[in-house]
């Protein structure tokens, strides 16, 4: 036991040190009902886990200390090989814990499939989120506008995200608003989120998608309903239309800055039903992925970056500097 003591002390110190920063951790600091429900479930489970750790550690410390080999050793019983009572106890207690964890888990799983309870009577805002290596395209079908790498949403209103991908399997995640869901080519998944506070939240793809994965991020700006409506109508009036040629260039792997358009790509393609579109677009532009460490790959990358720059210029020229956000 003497030998184990520094180890336990160290663990305890570390736990205290880390837990003191708890409230700063973004998953535990949600800004909407979905994230809040998940935070509550996480905290509920953490108490159980701390209890289990406490029991196991206390028992370990007691047994190891009491029955260490020493002079005047007492209570040695080499044939002590089981006890029905004890074994029944430690079959039953974990079963009870699992039941206690299962009930709120299943409840939450079901409730997270729909819009949050508090705003059930509101009509959700629908946004199509499409991942394409390594950018996010957001289409607002009702407002008939499209943004790249940023989102505007009204506060206190549920948002229904329809997720899909043009190529790699991605995962749409805004930690402070709630948990993630996969976006997959040829598939559509749905995710409800809602912001209860105005502000800018970081969103990202959390599922590995290759070279540009680390910067596969976007910003979410939650604002008042009125501000949102104003932004949407101004965008519709002033932003340039998205052309097929521009959209093809978006399909090339790479990063672009934030962009805004007054029409959506849903007019001609929905990646949820057409998984091959991005590959076809790349072929039209004469692009082919190369072996990563080869010289050809470096040249290809340079060419892609130039294309991206041209795309960015074509978007900002047509609506000057009137980025509405």
């Amino acid at each position: 036991m003497r030998r184990l003591k520094p180890f336990f002390t160290f663990g305890l110190l570390m736990a205290v040190f880390m837990l003191s920063g708890c409230s700063d951790m973004i998953v535990l600091d949600p800004k909407g009902p979905v994230g809040a429900e998940q935070r509550d479930l996480i905290m509920y489970s953490i108490w159980f886990m701390l209890f289990i750790l406490l029991v196991v550690y206390a028992l370990t410390a007691f047994i190891v200390y009491k029955y260490r080999d020493r002079k005047n050793h007492k209570g040695y019983d080499p044939d002590n090989e089981g006890s029905h009572l004890l074994e029944t106890i430690w079959w039953i207690i974990p079963i009870i814990i699992v039941i206690a964890l299962s009930i709120p888990t299943v409840k939450s799983i079901y409730s997270l499939e729909g819009p949050p309870e508090e705003s059930k009577d509101q009509k959700p805002l629908v946004i199509h989120a499409t991942s394409v290596n390594w950018k996010w395209v957001f289409s607002y079908p009702e407002q008939d506008i499209e943004t790249v790498n940023y989102l505007h949403i009204p506060e206190d209103r549920p948002v229904l995200f329809k997720l899909t991908s043009a190529d790699s399997m991605a995962s749409f995640w805004v930690p402070q608003l709630g948990g993630q869901k996969y976006a997959m080519a040829g598939m559509e998944t749905e995710l409800y989120l809602q912001a209860d506070e105005q502000g800018t939240y970081e969103g990202r793809n959390s599922n590995f998608t290759g070279e540009g994965f680390t910067n596969h991020t976007f910003d979410v700006m939650a604002m008042s309903d009125a501000e949102f409506e104003k932004w949407a109508s101004e965008t519709k009036a002033h932003a340039p239309e998205l052309s097929k040629g521009q959209y093809d260039k978006l399909m090339l792997p790479g990063h672009v800055k934030e962009m805004t358009f007054s029409s959506t790509h849903l007019d001609w393609v929905d990646h949820a039903t057409n998984a091959e579109y991005a590959l076809d677009a790349r072929e039209r532009l004469g692009y082919e992925e190369k072996i990563p460490h080869s010289r050809a790959a470096k040249e290809e990358k340079k060419k892609r970056e130039e294309e991206m720059k041209k795309l960015e210029e074509s978007e900002s020229e047509s609506h000057g500097d009137s980025h509405a956000h």
Partner: peptide
């Protein structure tokens, strides 16, 4: 066990 709770896993996944 915490990760097994699917509703919470949406926040832990891929982290």
């Amino acid at each position: 066990v915490m990760l097994a709770m699917a509703a919470a896993d949406y926040q832990y996944h891929n982290t």
